[in-house]
């Protein structure tokens, strides 16, 4: 058995395929590609696949990770991406397949890019909002209670650019220990600044504890 890490992008309209649907898509895509993948050995064997981090509906991504296993220890990874891409629905593109370097639990941060259709008008307000030292967000807990949390200390890094539209790059905690969703921060900001403003988020990287791309 060989562990294999697949890296892929989810772009264009594929951002409207939910995480649950993405899992189904991947299973079928792996079956179509006719790779010698490992199935679980339970009563109902199913294709083994684990994702690093669910991607919210509506987000595109430049850097997604799914781990699978090949039955054969010595299986080559050459040509795996090509086979997968030939069998992919629109918007799914595999760019690397390799043996995992770190465990998926080493995922600590994710980097996002948000683009606002604002004509560049929101940049200053957004800069002020993000640097204000306190960003309280209402979050639903698993029990269904609404809890207010301050996410300002969680913002690892951000930068802003304004042209035809304002672009925000932001690094936030992601993984088993803690995850902060960028859309919560943005929605909070827009609810005060410009509730009608349309924006789009891309997850650009998944990072380990050293803030290096998770490999």
């Amino acid at each position: 058995m060989k562990n294999v890490r697949l890296f892929y992008k989810k772009t264009g309209l594929a951002r409207f395929v939910s995480h649950l649907d993405t899992m189904r898509c991947m299973t079928r895509l792996l079956r179509r590609a006719n790779l010698d993948v490992w199935y679980t050995e339970g009563f109902n064997p199913h294709l083994y696949i684990t994702f690093a981090m669910p991607l919210s509906l509506g987000m595109t991504s430049e850097y997604e990770i799914a781990d699978i296993r090949f039955n054969d220890d010595g299986a080559t990874l050459d040509g795996v991406c090509e086979k997968l891409n030939e069998n992919s629905p629109e918007g799914f593109h595999f760019f690397a397949a390799s043996e995992p370097v770190k465990k998926l639990s080493e995922l600590k941060f994710a980097k996002y890019k948000a683009e606002f259709s604002d004509g560049g008008a929101l940049k200053e307000k957004l800069e002020k909002f993000l640097s204000s030292g306190e960003i309280s967000i209402e979050k639903k807990t698993k029990k269904g209670e609404i809890k207010t949390i301050d996410v300002a200390p969680d913002i690892e890094k951000f930068s802003l650019e304004a042209g035809d539209e304002t672009t925000l790059d932001i690094t936030l905690p992601a993984g088993n220990d803690k995850t902060v969703k960028p859309e919560l921060i943005i929605n909070k900001f827009l609810s005060q600044a410009d509730p009608e403003c349309y924006y789009k988020i891309t997850r650009t990287l998944l990072l380990d504890g050293e803030k290096m791309p998770l490999k």
């Binding site: 309209l13 594929a14 409207f16 079928r28 992919s88 629109e90 789009k200």
Partner: peptide, 14 residues
């Protein structure tokens, strides 16, 4: 981005 289950309007399936 404003509707429920937008995937059903997208096309592009295999």
């Amino acid at each position: 981005s404003r509707v429920q289950k937008p995937g059903r309007y997208c096309g592009g399936e295999i």
